[in-house]
Amino acid sequence: MFDLDNLFIFALAVLIGFEVITKVPPTLHTPLMSGSNAISGITLIGAILVVNDLPLELGSILGFIAIVLATINVVGGFAVTDRMLNMFKSSK
């Protein structure tokens, strides 16, 4: 059941994350955080997968609440990041 490959994938993804993000200038730290925060809403995928067609089961109710919370995270996160980045202007 436990797939060791997943652990390798996790470790490599962490390294890629470090590599990509180290160079972000301070000006963009807030949008970076709200944008990456939206990405952590990927758990929405998991929430969709655990909802099954027996809506009154506890598992489905938990899944439904998870869908609502994760969607707020995803939609709100990307939207507010977009709003912020539109404010960033160069004087040139």
Binding site: N6, I9, F10, A13, I21, I39, I42
Partner: peptide, 26 residues
């Protein structure tokens, strides 16, 4: 999110969660 990816065996969650985990740590 990454840990939930391990629960479900979903590599999309594992990778995305790990990226955010790394970014937050930096």
């Amino acid at each position: 999110a990454s840990a939930t990816g391990f629960v479900l065996g979903n590599k999309g969650l594992i990778i995305s969660g790990a990226l955010v985990g790394a970014s937050g740590l930096i």
